[in-house]
Amino acid sequence: MAIKHPYKAIVIGGSAGSFQTVLHILESLPKNFSIPILLTLHRLKHVRSGLAESVSLTSHKPIVEPYDKQAIEPNTVYIAPSNYHLMVDDDYTCSLSTEQPVEFSRPSIDVLFASAAQVYKQQLIAILLSGANKDGAQGMKIVKQCGGTVIIQDPSEAEVSIMPKSVIDIVRPDIIMETEDIITFLKNMVK
């Protein structure tokens, strides 16, 4: 099947109230949706595992907590490991860091989005979901500056609207939509 869209990677961020949404998006993606997805979800520091496992159960794709310098492959979902920032390096590998929290968060969505934006530029889609703090907004600004596509969950649908709203405060999102429309948008990319 010919792929017509220009995208090479998708980054998704979320915090309070986003977990079920992420699961739903991942399980709804068709098998031929091969673009790699990188996820940063805020989580409790000492809950090491479980997240990757529960996402794996519902998705068609392998879900991994990447090792430092692990290559980013198609058809795979990468989740920021607990207590590490996840970044994308120029050579399309994952890079981890234990630098101080950003917006009280490690992993931080800003850190993932900003690094992915600089590598993938206009070939990146960034999606920010429900959450109770501002992490992700600065990252979205950089995604926009680098030519990527900025999508936020409609704050009126989000369980906690602070996170998607904080994007609107500093940058104009390309698309504001509800979860089902995000899924349709992604599915249409590979039709």
Partner: peptide, 9 residues
Amino acid sequence: YSENSLMRR
């Protein structure tokens, strides 16, 4: 040093 982190630092 790995570039990404160093740049941030």
